[in-house]
Design a protein around this nucleic acid. Structure first.
Lengths: 237, 237
DNA sequence: AGCCGACTTTCTGTCGACATGAAATATATT
DNA sequence: AATATATTTCATGTCGACAGAAAGTCGGCT
């Protein structure tokens, strides 16, 4: 006989969805800086917020931790991963490398479907630049470059690149207020040139564009940071 | 087989150690092919084997899954990640790139402590080559290259490279029986030349050696595969 | 006899509760 | 008063149990 009276407060949630819901929501909030770097993550709070037990929440946290989006101090707190301004050069190096490698692969192996994907992302990016929506700009820019990486067809590159771009999103968010509208339009043009080079399978041209583009972004971030007095006080947020 | 003397009543296990114990043990067994690709992972079995509840085991599995060492089919089985022979070229590309990038960084930024680390790993590698222990050779070779990556000081590179080398360990294990003793000795010599170039901060020399080394390994794996009829039947294990 | 559907099995996903260890607080001592 | 120590607090780590979902099994039907 079944005990399944199912009570009043029905667990109206599909079975395997708990962990991924929490994971994706928190991931987005961390990258959006909705959750500030260093802010504590409380399992009980999340348990109440997402209306589920701590178990699926813990599993989501383990997943986030393995992507370095959160840091867990054993037996004590777990906090949103700080933005490490001390290792920025390693970040810039890796980011530049992946810009170059992924666009080279894309220029080599792209097919029409992948090109369409890239163009769609570029349109979304151009729209948010027109709209002056800095947040959406940062997000669509990320998607554009991930689409290029996908066109290259190397999952190892795509995965690392996506992580780097997400980390970049966090840093850019810190400075979104200082965004001016000169650089974004330049990015739109550079993106268009990239698409052209990829479509033409001109690997060296694409590579050169990637180098220039990466240089732009690195310089942009560096100028934001050096213009911001906060970092002379607390280097690690 | 190890420990397990803990029997009887006492939950004599340190508090935060459960997850990492399971994680590290399974990780080693997966990379060693002690757990065959595609073989099922049963939480209840592991629960009994490690003498702990399913909760810490599940968290270890989540961690392994996020590193693509296992694959979980929602609501169904979780299995050891198959070795994907179809995407080998992406693997070779990424591996070669990381050989080059990490050794270039190492040749640029290495300090004496890092060099000592690298030399220690090389000694361990040379010893296992002398001993003709193919398994240990594969493991110490991995450690040697990770040490070089560490010397470069870029965590993003080190992490990806370590993952790639571990994946390579799985593939090499498949063919360990066909190891001959010509190539390993060549590897020892090549490793020595790499150390020399890194110590001399000769970036271009180091890069050239990395390319040659990567080429060796890729060719070795490819020859094993093409010499092995298994793969014409089931391309994905 | 063969195909379809309900039952059973056996996993995984989720839950609530307890144990433990570290920070925070209160207390005692020099 | 300041430091060292005991106590409280409370978030985390772990546990055992229940519920839901597929695969496998068995019996009924045309």
């Amino acid at each position: 006989m079944r005990t399944g009276a199912k009570t009043a407060t029905g667990p109206e949630r599909k079975r395997g969805s708990g962990v991924s819901t929490v994971y994706e929501t928190l991931r987005r909030e961390i990258i959006d800086l909705t959750l500030a770097p260093g802010s504590p993550i409380d399992e009980a709070h999340l348990s109440e917020r997402f209306q589920m037990s701590r178990t699926p929440i813990r599993e989501a946290l383990v997943r986030l931790a393995s992507e370095n989006l959160i840091v867990t101090l054993t037996n004590r707190a777990t906090v949103v991963a700080p933005i490490d301004f001390l290792n920025l050069s390693a970040f810039f190096d890796a980011l530049t490398l992946m810009y170059r490698v992924t666009i080279r692969e894309a220029a080599t192996r792209r097919d029409e479907a992948a090109l369409d994907e890239i163009r769609a992302c570029q349109h979304a990016f151009a729209r948010s630049v027109e709209a002056g929506d800095a947040f959406d700009m940062i997000a669509t820019n990320r998607d554009f470059h991930v689409a290029i990486a996908r066109a290259g067809g190397n999952g190892y590159y795509t995965e690392l690149f996506a992580r780097l771009l997400d980390e970049g999103r966090r840093i850019l968010r810190l400075y979104y207020s200082t965004f001016n509208d000169v650089l974004p339009r330049r990015y739109v043009v550079e993106h268009d040139e990239m698409i052209e080079a990829i479509a033409a399978k001109d690997v060296e041209k694409a590579d050169a564009l990637a180098i220039a583009h990466a240089d732009q972004i690195v310089r942009q971030i560096q100028s934001y940071i050096s213009a911001d007095r906060r970092n002379s006080n607390s280097l690690v947020l």
